[in-house]
């Protein structure tokens, strides 16, 4: 029964993967090949597509694989099975955290993980920027310069025009990319 297989496979992926989308790829690949839902090559195309369609990468990958295996119903089963462990884990954790709200050990723990999380966010921005820059440099130096200008312009817009929606800035950057790169 393909729906049961999809549910179990994606619940397992959701349960055992930490750190979001791209960190999940090896687990996806194992499940997809085991069940014969698609080839490795097809799956790699899906990974690229998942970064282009809206929504979290992991959810997109689940929808693509589920849809390939059993149409829209398959996509629905895979997506909800993937999301379920996240939801349950957060609900369990928040009730525990609520109970130990003013515990000094908990506060100390959070003091430490906040600095670490902050570093991860900076690092993620750096990875996207350097990755895209490397891709631009393969195409032309001009495209890399234009990219740096886009970064500077978007940063300045967020600083000096805080009312402008970040989504609008992304859309404008897409048009700039389309015309300039």
């Amino acid at each position: 029964m393909v729906f049961v297989e999809l549910f179990i496979a994606f619940f397992r992926i959701g349960l055992f993967s930490f750190g979001g989308g791209l960190a999940m790829i090896p687990m996806y690949l194992t499940e997809v090949e085991k069940h014969g839902w698609m080839t490795q090559q097809e799956f790699m195309n899906i990974v690229a597509l998942s970064q282009m369609t809206p929504g979290p990468i992991a959810v997109n990958m689940a929808s693509y694989v589920g849809s390939g295996a059993a149409g829209f119903a398959g996509a629905t089963v895979a997506t909800f099975a993937l999301a379920l462990p996240s939801v349950l884990a957060i609900l369990a954790l928040t009730s525990v955290l609520h109970r130990i709200q003013h515990n000094p050990w908990k506060e100390a723990f959070f003091f430490g993980i906040k600095s670490a999380a902050m570093a991860l966010i900076f690092y993620a921005g750096w990875l996207i920027a350097s990755d895209t820059l490397a891709l631009s440099l393969q195409e032309s130096e001009w495209s890399a310069v234009a990219g740096a200008l886009v970064v500077a312009a978007v940063y300045a817009a967020r600083t000096y025009l805080p009312k402008v929606s970040p989504v609008l800035l992304i859309v404008i950057a897409a048009f700039v990319g389309f015309w300039v790169f």
Binding site: W126, T132, S143, V150, V151, V154, V176, G177, F181
Partner: peptide, 9 residues
């Protein structure tokens, strides 16, 4: 490519 630069910023 344009969007990725914007997201980095």
């Amino acid at each position: 490519m344009g969007m990725r630069y914007a997201v980095a910023a």
